[in-house]
């Protein structure tokens, strides 16, 4: 079971906007075993979604540009694949659940049409069979009355139901890797819990690897085996989920954990936040990317960027931890 499904090495993605070259992702690397769940955490604009889209090769290029690195899926570099080869992989071997269930489904096609076309495309099933398989998928994601739902349009379903449809679409061909890009961010809390349970259960059932992207550390702690914390286009901490959460090393990870409100917390105690805002990726030329917001900043942090180094069982990018 220790087969490596996905290996991302030294990935760099630039956005070329007018004359500026903005490195949105810089030197990101991680690997994923079969059936494993990797959580990617970070604030908005830290490069999580860009990394995910680049694995699917769905980034708009231009303005985006892969500047370096490789993405190995079952040993083959996805960045070297032709568009046609990549198309065959998408939806069949790697699929994606998007953040916005409200806008991610096509408003003018029925749910049945939108799911069944995946079977027709990748498995050459005739329409009738594709539709009955679609109904099966809807049953699997626990949509009541699947046969009826097949004939419905997205606007007739609630947000939670639409996200279930998205999950059904993503899992249709039993892919080996599912990328869930903030799948519950747009949902309310009770629906969020249901969707998380569903993803967890189905992941085990079809034994797929999952990259789970979220800005919510709590959710990642629930679903992920390993976690990568990203900041300004870089991984700053990487390790097993329990290690990262119980003994966070990087000041940024510590800050994120401190910023989670605790229900037993005294009312008088102020919730700690990370001061400042995320800098633009091209704002900081040298030194540690986190130096503008770090409480432990030293001279070395300002002049020289720390490398991602092994510390215990995980990896950390901080001079203070060495």
């Amino acid at each position: 079971m220790n087969e490596v499904i996905l290996e991302v090495n030294n990935l760099g993605i630039d956005f070329c906007i007018e004359d500026r070259v903005i490195p949105a992702v810089d030197g990101v690397g991680f690997s994923l075993l079969k059936g494993e769940t990797l959580g990617i955490v970070g604030e908005s604009g830290c490069g999580k979604s860009v990394t995910a889209l680049s694995i699917m090769r769905l980034l708009q290029m231009p303005p985006a540009r892969i500047s370096k690195g490789e993405i190995l899926f079952k040993g083959e570099n996805l960045l070297r694949k032709s568009d046609e080869e990549m198309r065959r992989i998408r939806g069949r071997d790697i699929s994606m659940i998007f953040q916005e269930p409200m806008t991610s489904l096509n408003p003018v096609f029925t749910i049945g049409q939108q799911i069944s076309e995946i079977f027709m495309q990748h498995q050459d099933l005739p329409k009738k069979e594709a539709l009955s398989r679609s109904a099966e998928m809807l049953r699997m994601v626990r949509i009541p009355m699947p046969e009826k739902a097949l004939k419905q349009y997205p606007h007739q379903l609630s947000g939670g139901m639409r996200q279930r449809v998205m999950i059904a679409m993503a899992l249709a061909c039993q892919p080996e890797l599912v990328i869930a890009d903030e799948p519950t961010t747009a949902l309310d809390v009770t629906v969020e819990a249901q969707i998380l349970d569903l993803i967890h259960e189905l992941k085990d059932r079809i034994n797929t690897a999952v990259i789970f992207i979220s800005h919510d550390l709590g959710i990642v702690a629930e679903v992920a085996d390993r976690v990568a914390v990203m900041y300004s286009g870089r991984i700053v901490e990487y390790g097993a989920v329990c290690t990262v959460f119980n003994e966070p090393k990087h000041p940024y990870t510590k800050g994120l954990l401190d910023a989670i409100p605790d229900i037993g917390m005294s009312r008088n105690k102020r919730l700690r936040e990370i001061r400042g805002v995320v800098p633009y990726p091209d704002e900081i030329k040298n030194g540690c990317r986190f130096k503008t917001r770090c409480d432990y900043v030293r001279n070395k942090c300002i002049s020289k960027e720390p490398p991602l180094l092994q510390l215990g069982t995980g990896l950390v990018r901080c001079w203070n931890c060495l």
Partner: peptide, 28 residues
């Protein structure tokens, strides 16, 4: 629109993405 990206993520032919998923919406 997001749903065009979704259609691409399903691995449909680019023609199906443009002439089926996108065009039907654009014609409204």
């Amino acid at each position: 629109q997001d749903y065009v990206r979704t259609a691409r993520s399903k691995g449909l032919y680019e023609k199906a993405v443009v002439y089926r998923h996108a065009l039907k919406n654009a014609l409204i």
